[in-house]
C-alpha cells in the first residue's frame, strides 16, 4: 500500500472516530462505506474507527465532557456503522465482552440509576440482562445461572434495602455460583467499605466507573474474555 493510501486510510479512521464522537450517523455510514469499498480490512474499520470512537466517547463521558443523550447518539451511530460492516462483508454480530445480570435489590424500587449503568454497560460492549427493581435474591441467582453471567451488578438507594445485597450474594453462593460470578454493587446507599464487608468483588460510585470496574473484573476472572470487539470475518 502506498504512503498516500496509508495517509488516506489513517485520515479516514480519524474522520470515522470523530463522526462517532459527534453522533453523526450519516458521516459514519458514508465513511464506513468508503473504507470498505477501498478494500480496507473490515475488522480494522470496526476497531480503529468505530470502537475507538466509542472508547473516546466513554472517556469524554467519564470526564464530564459529554452528556448521556450525546453518548446514546454516538452509540447509535457506532452500531449503525457496525451493522453496515456486517451487511456488506457478511460478518457475524459483535461478540459481547461479557454477560451481566443487573437489578435493584429487594425492598428498593429506584430505577433510573440502574438504567443509566445498564445503558453504559451495553454501550461498553457488554450483554446486559436487566431484572428490574425490587428483585428477590433467588431471582438474581436464577438469572445468573440461566444466562451464565460472569458479573452480577446490584443497585440500592435505600439504607433499608442495602443489606439485601448481602442476602443476594448469599443466595448466589447457595446456588453454587460462588466461583462463577463476580458481584459489583452501586447506588447512593452504598460505598466501598460496605462492598468489602458484604463480600462483593467491586463497587462503582457512578456509571462510568461501573463500566471500568466490570472490565477489570472480567480481566481478573478466568472465565472472562479479552477486551475488544472480537469481530470474526466470514470469508
Amino acid at each position: 500500500m502506498s504512503d498516500f493510501s496509508n495517509k488516506w486510510i489513517i485520515n479516514e479512521y480519524r474522520k470515522l472516530r470523530q463522526a462517532v464522537v459527534s453522533g453523526d450517523r450519516v458521516l459514519v455510514l458514508k465513511t464506513v462505506r468508503q473504507l470498505l469499498e477501498s478494500g480496507v480490512d473490515p475488522l480494522r474499520v470496526v476497531n480503529q474507527g468505530l470502537v475507538s470512537g466509542m472508547d473516546a466517547v466513554g472517556n469524554m463521558f467519564r470526564d464530564n465532557e459529554m452528556f448521556m443523550p450525546d453518548v446514546l447518539m454516538s452509540a447509535r451511530a457506532m452500531n449503525e456503522g457496525i451493522n453496515l460492516v456486517r451487511r456488506i462483508r457478511r460478518t457475524p454480530a459483535r461478540r459481547p465482552l461479557g454477560k451481566i445480570v443487573i437489578g435493584t435489590v429487594s425492598g428498593d424500587i429506584h430505577d433510573i440509576g440502574k438504567n443509566v449503568v445498564k445503558i453504559m454497560l451495553e454501550n461498553g460492549g457488554f450483554l446486559v440482562y436487566d431484572q428490574g427493581v425490587n428483585v428477590e435474591p433467588r431471582q438474581f441467582a436464577d438469572a445468573v445461572k440461566k444466562h451464565k453471567a460472569q458479573i452480577l451488578a446490584l443497585s440500592a438507594q435505600l439504607t433499608t434495602a442495602m443489606l439485601n445485597m448481602k442476602t443476594t450474594i448469599a443466595a448466589v453462593e447457595a446456588a453454587g455460583m460462588k466461583d462463577k460470578v463476580k458481584v459489583i454493587i452501586g447506588g447512593s446507599a452504598t460505598f466501598q467499605d460496605f462492598a468489602d464487608e458484604i463480600g462483593a468483588h467491586g463497587y462503582a460510585p457512578d456509571a462510568s466507573a461501573a463500566v471500568h470496574r466490570c472490565r477489570e473484573l472480567l480481566e481478573s476472572n478466568s472465565c472472562g474474555r479479552q477486551r475488544g470487539p472480537n469481530l470474526k470475518i466470514v470469508k
Binding site: 435505600l158 439504607t159 433499608t160 443489606l163 439485601n164 442476602t167 446507599a189
Partner: peptide
C-alpha cells in the same frame, strides 16, 4: 428521618 441500614 430514616432508618440506618436494616432490613425491614
Amino acid at each position: 428521618m430514616t432508618l440506618p441500614p436494616i432490613t425491614v
